[in-house]
């Protein structure tokens, strides 16, 4: 196939050297070379292959017995989105806790924690498996250093960000951190987002939330993400609010 790596012109003119240097700095598809003005065969097909993998990742479902999650001892509740297909098409249902969730949360969860971490499948369980174990440990450690109480973490199946409002009503935590799998990209299906809210209640929107996104090895690594999340939580405690009124402290 037409691989630029085997192209003598690209080698001779120094194009390949710069392309290799760029690959160290960024996962973006830069300096690809062209067929006419279009993509070369290898690049066009690589895009299709990565897209196929991402589509398949979206189709996979949360498994708390997965080796990455099993040691965490999470329990699980479900939203009103009864299955995966409904989850994708009905975000309104994914924002509401399902019928059995309230009882289970009050029985097994923590009411009134200073910091409550919740794990949601969102659109990528691969992100949950890859980032949540280390992130959860680090968040618990930093929460301890702050002297805050730690709510028992749990998972929400078929989860959308808006479920924060229902969780606020049932468990009444001070700050909630929802760790949710982002829509898979082509470079990675392992990117996680953390949505933060101060005392969420029905009617709260994204304007009342703060976000640390792109949590993965080549984006915001877990340790930095944990520090940013806790710094945001501190800012919320100081402001007794979240969302656009709270600006993220400058990079730590």
């Amino acid at each position: 196939m037409s691989d630029l790596e085997a192209d003598p012109v690209a080698t001779a003119t120094g194009w390949l050297e710069l392309r290799r240097a760029a690959a160290v700095v960024t996962p973006a598809r830069v300096f690809l070379g062209s067929a006419g003005l279009s993509h070369r065969s290898a690049d066009a097909l690589a895009l299709r292959a990565d897209h196929a993998a991402a589509r398949d990742a979206v189709a996979s479902v949360l498994d708390l017995g997965h080796p990455a999650l099993a040691p965490l001892g999470l329990f699980e509740v479900c939203t009103e989105a009864g299955d995966h297909a409904v989850h994708l098409r009905r975000p309104d249902l994914g924002r509401r806790l399902g019928p059995d969730a309230r009882a289970r949360l009050t029985a097994e969860g923590t009411v009134g924690a200073d910091l409550q971490v919740v794990v949601g499948d969102g659109l990528s369980v691969a992100a949950v498996y890859a980032q949540v174990p280390a992130l959860l440990v680090e968040l618990e450690r930093l929460t301890g250093l702050q002297g805050w109480t730690w709510g028992r973490p749990f998972a929400v199946r078929h989860c959308r960000v808006g479920v924060l409002n229902d969780l606020g009503v049932v468990l009444d935590p001070r700050v909630v951190v929802l760790l949710v799998g982002e829509r898979p990209g082509l470079a990675t299906a392992e990117s996680l987002s953390a949505y933060l809210a101060w005392r969420p209640r029905p009617g709260c929107t994204d304007a009342d939330r703060n976000l640390v996104s792109n949590i993965h090895d080549r984006g915001t690594p877990v340790e930095l993400a944990a520090r940013r999340i806790v710094a945001l939580a501190e800012a919320m405690v100081a402001a007794q609010a979240s969302g656009s009124e709270v600006r993220e402290p400058d990079q730590l």
Binding site: A28, R29, V30, S38
Partner: peptide, 23 residues
Amino acid sequence: PGADDVMLSYQSTSYHDAASVRE
């Protein structure tokens, strides 16, 4: 670049796509 936004995790049109449609 390459139609693949590595931050927003979606696909758009690439530099190549835009250039070839201009032509």
